[in-house]
Design a protein around this nucleic acid. Structure first.
Lengths: 259, 259
DNA sequence: GGACGTCACTTGTCCTTACGAGTTACGACT
DNA sequence: AGTCGTAACTCGTAAGGACAAGTGACGTCC
């Protein structure tokens, strides 16, 4: 049995003791922690207290718990997917965007019609409620099992101007870029990044473990005259992905980021 | 009293019912939810079950709970800080990086000496354990109360080559860029973005509410010959910040992102 | 030998009870 | 009138018990 000290609630003291044991290396990464019963004996507390402490450590992302097996120290969350943000000058380099070149589609893409929300209307410079084509994909990296949700939103105006697009709205992003370029547009992109906790459906679709945020990218592809052409969204578990951007001090397009 | 349906555990059914009520607008943003006692009566379950359901909604970031007052629907997490990643051609535009121009320092910056970890050594192309100057800042946006943690790591080699730096390692990033440029470097930056749950000390330092990830930026400033000069890290609550990048298809520096 | 069932272990769920602690409003006392 | 204490609400913490459900190993049965 191990004595416990001061600060705060009992379960927090237990959580702090376990956390310290993990960080000090007493419990190695991927190793099995003592069972709830053992922790009860070790710290002389009831089972709800132990479970409360464990819940706190789960919320911090320090441990993983598996029903029927036990609690495991989570190993370092090493990102395996690197999403590049700055492209080269050749058209082929566009494929690197979002790193989707090597990915497979876990399901058939689903296409639909929808309407612009306030946020999407602002990004695409549309009226609210304006009609859009939509296409959702579930992407998989077969090597690592990493999953990502990808969505393409195409305003009717863009589809009208680029007939190829209207015929096949489920086209892959890289192909979409090529179509837009073929239609005479000189492309650039405006990308915003946010992180948040996943909604329940995202948790299941992306197979996310506990306490794992999602990275949410919104990318607007703009063409000649800085016209917003399409909007893409990518959602991916932050335990597997990191973003990489190159920033150079060269000339900057005139369009503002936000009003 | 409201009847509950099938799927899964009782507390999950309760959580789903409350979540649905929130998303359907029955409980408006920032409004007070029924108390635990009322929820017990409404769904005919015990208090632990209600609390378990509430804990699930907290972990999703849907609600905020305040001791002695009640549970509140969390209002839309509108980011108030926009961190720009693509700079203009004029030197002044460098100040926009990280959006720190308008920020104040909540505490005096603390400077210290440390050693390169495996990760920082890789980013700065150093040997492991190599000595570094460090400088930590706690930044505040007085208008919104948003906080951010900023760290600058300067290898000895860079400090030797730029005497201004060695004399005042606590200099602000914008000034550091100016010093490096004055020393004859043509600067560019390599930035990687990750999101994760905050450590306990980050939670308190950044005053983060429940279920709020942190955005973790690592920015390497490179100079002539693509030499890594300094490493900056910025940590900021994802409920208040979003990143914005412009991506153009112009020429790309030769340096690789990762090995 | 192989398949299957059982058992001992784990965590998950759910209940009851009790008290501590923060918040607010009302009312009595000064 | 102003101040302060108390009461009645809120959520937080802690204990106890009971049973369900997933896992793996061992042993029995075919």
């Amino acid at each position: 049995m191990t004595e416990i000290q001061r600060p705060g609630a009992l379960y927090q003291q237990v959580a702090a003791a376990i956390r310290e044991a993990i960080l000090s290396g007493e419990f190695a990464p991927a190793s099995l922690l003592p069972s709830e019963a053992q922790l009860m004996a070790r710290y002389q507390v009831s089972r709800p207290t132990v479970r409360n402490a464990i819940a706190a450590l789960r919320a911090e992302g320090l441990i993983d718990v598996r029903h029927g097996k036990g609690s495991f120290v989570r190993s370092e969350p090493q990102p395996v997917v690197s999403l590049l943000g700055h492209v080269g000058r050749t058209p082929e380099a566009h494929f690197v965007l979002h790193g989707v070149a090597t990915w497979e589609q876990a399901e058939e893409p689903s296409t639909y019609r929808t309407h612009a929300t306030e946020a999407t209307a602002h990004l695409l410079e549309l009226e609210a409620e304006e009609a859009l084509f939509g296409c959702d994909r579930l992407l998989t990296d077969p090597a690592t099992g990493t999953r990502a949700m990808h969505r393409t939103l195409i305003p009717f105006a863009t589809a009208d101007a680029v007939p190829d697009l209207a015929e096949a709205p489920e086209t892959k992003p890289a192909t979409v870029y090529a179509m837009l370029a073929k239609a005479g547009h000189e492309l650039w992109w405006s990308e915003t990044v946010r992180a948040r906790m996943p909604l329940p459906d995202e948790r299941t679709a992306l197979r996310l473990p506990d306490a794992t945020p999602v990275l949410h990218l919104s990318r607007v592809t703009c063409g000649t005259d800085d016209t917003p052409l399409i909007l893409e969204e990518l959602r991916i578990g932050a335990d597997r992905a990191e973003l990489a951007y190159r920033i150079t001090a060269d000339k900057q397009p005139a369009r503002r980021t936000r009003s």
